[in-house]
Amino acid sequence: MSTIDVHTHYVPRSWPDLSAAAGPGEDWPWPRLESERDVTIMIRSTEFRRIEANCWDAETRLADMDADGVDVQVVSPTPVFFSYTRPGDQALKVARIFNDLALEICAPAPDRFWPLCQVPLQDPDLACAELDRCLAAGHLGVEIGNHVGDRDLDDAGIVTFLQHCARVGAPVLVHPWDMPSSPRLNRWMAQWLTGMPAESHLSILALVLGGVFDQVPESLRICFAHGGGSFPFWVGRMDNAWHRRPDLVGTSEYPPSHYLDRFSVDTVVFAEPALRLLVDTVGVDRVMLGSDYPYPLGERPVGQLVRGAPFLTEPARAQLLGGNAARFLGRPVTVG
C-alpha cells in the first residue's frame, strides 16, 4: 500500500531579487527572505511566515516522510508567490523562476517528490503556455489559487485554462488564498480559521452554479485543498436554494449535489467526524491524503487521521492513503 501526500508546499532557500527580475513592486511588493535570526518571508516590513529547512531541504523532508510512513509528496508552490495582482508578463517571469527552483528542490528524489507548477492565472494564454513548458520539464500538474481578485473559477479566462488542463491531462490542485481582511478577521488567525474554508466553499460553488462543470469535460481532474472548505457541510442548503430560487441561484443544469463526483478533496480536516462527512459527501474514491506539510497548521504525523479512523474499511483506507491519488495524478508509485 503506497502513501501519497497530495498537499505539501515548498519555499526555496533563496531566489533572485524579483524587482530586478520581473519589475518594480511599489504597489504590490514582492516577497523576500530575511535571515538575521530565523529565515522569514517578508512583505515590505511585515513578517508573512517563518520557515525552516523542511521547506527546501530534500534530506529533511525525506526524513520526515520516512518517520510518518509517506512514500510520495506532491510538492506545490506556497500561494504567496502566485503574483496574480501583477501584470501577466511579470507574473510569468516569477512563475518561471519558482517553477525551475521547484524542480531543483525535487531533483534529489524524483520518485518521492512530484512537483506541481504555478502559472500566471490572470492571463490564460500565458498560463497555458507555462503549464505546457512545465509539464515538458517534469512537473506533474499545476496548483492554482481559488480566485484572481474578484474573478472566481467561473471566469471565462480561468475556464479556458481549466479546459486546457483537461485537454493536456494535467491534474489541478486548488488552494485557497488571499483571504479577506477586516478587524473581525485580523485576530485569532480568523482569516485561516474561517476565511480559508469560506474561500474554498465559494469557489466550488462557482464551478457548480457558474455552469463550469457543464462546460469542461469530465476528464478534468481537480482537487480542492483543506477538505473543500465548508462546502461539504452545506450541500443540502445549496440544493434547497437551487430548487426554491432558480431565479437567483446560478446557471447550472443540475443542482449542486449532482456534481459531487466532478472534484476531489484532501483530508486536511483534523477530526474524524469531518473526514466521515467528506467520504459520505463526495465518495470514498474522491478523498485523498493531504497534510499541508511543512507548515505549523498541517497534520503531523501525516496520515494519522486516516490511519486511525475506525469507520474506514481497510480497502477504503488504502484508497485514501494512496490509491485515489495515484489515479488522480495519473502516475504509479515506484518507491522501493
Results as ranks from 00 to 15, higher is better:
residue 146 N to S: 15
residue 240 N to G: 10
residue 194 T to C: 04
residue 165 C to M: 06
residue 201 H to C: 13
residue 222 I to S: 03
residue 193 L to H: 10
residue 235 V to L: 00
residue 239 D to M: 12
residue 179 M to I: 13
residue 222 I to N: 03
residue 246 P to E: 01
residue 176 P to Y: 02
residue 193 L to M: 04
residue 163 Q to R: 07
residue 215 Q to K: 10
residue 190 A to S: 15
residue 160 T to Y: 00
residue 228 G to K: 01
residue 220 L to Q: 04
residue 223 C to W: 05
residue 243 H to R: 12
residue 181 S to R: 15
residue 149 G to R: 11
residue 215 Q to Y: 03
residue 170 A to I: 04
residue 247 D to P: 00
residue 155 D to H: 14
residue 186 N to F: 09
residue 162 L to M: 07
residue 234 W to M: 06
residue 217 P to F: 02
residue 249 V to T: 07
residue 252 S to V: 06
residue 171 P to G: 00
residue 163 Q to F: 00
residue 252 S to G: 11
residue 210 G to W: 07
residue 216 V to C: 01
residue 219 S to F: 02
residue 183 P to C: 02
residue 184 R to Q: 14
residue 145 G to A: 13
residue 223 C to V: 08
residue 224 F to W: 08
residue 165 C to G: 09
residue 201 H to D: 13
residue 242 W to R: 07
residue 199 E to N: 07
residue 184 R to E: 13
residue 188 W to V: 14
residue 205 L to W: 00
residue 166 A to R: 03
residue 224 F to M: 05
residue 166 A to T: 00
residue 156 A to F: 00
residue 227 G to T: 09
residue 197 P to Q: 04
residue 229 G to M: 03
residue 169 G to Q: 09
residue 166 A to N: 06
residue 231 F to Y: 14
residue 234 W to P: 00
residue 191 Q to V: 14
residue 227 G to R: 11
residue 169 G to T: 11
residue 222 I to F: 02
residue 256 P to D: 09
residue 184 R to L: 15
residue 202 L to Y: 01
residue 251 T to V: 10
residue 204 I to L: 02
residue 229 G to P: 01
residue 164 H to M: 04
residue 204 I to D: 02
residue 251 T to P: 04
residue 146 N to Q: 08
residue 241 A to S: 13
residue 230 S to P: 03
residue 248 L to V: 03
residue 245 R to N: 11
residue 146 N to R: 02
residue 208 V to G: 08
residue 213 F to K: 08
residue 242 W to I: 08
residue 234 W to Y: 01
residue 174 V to M: 05
residue 234 W to N: 01
residue 150 D to I: 12
residue 172 V to K: 05
residue 184 R to D: 11
residue 223 C to R: 03
residue 218 E to T: 08
residue 180 P to I: 14
residue 164 H to G: 05
residue 251 T to L: 11
residue 192 W to V: 10
residue 157 G to C: 11
residue 201 H to N: 14
residue 159 V to Y: 09
residue 253 E to I: 01
residue 150 D to W: 10
residue 182 S to C: 10
residue 148 V to Y: 04
residue 181 S to P: 13
residue 211 G to Y: 09
residue 219 S to M: 02
residue 159 V to M: 12
residue 233 F to I: 01
residue 221 R to K: 15
residue 154 D to C: 08
residue 169 G to L: 09
residue 192 W to M: 15
residue 209 L to Y: 01
residue 230 S to G: 12
residue 231 F to R: 01
residue 224 F to A: 03
residue 250 G to D: 06
residue 226 H to M: 05
residue 245 R to H: 15
residue 197 P to R: 10
residue 229 G to E: 02
residue 159 V to S: 08
residue 176 P to H: 08
residue 237 R to H: 08
residue 226 H to I: 13
residue 161 F to E: 03
residue 191 Q to S: 12
residue 243 H to K: 12
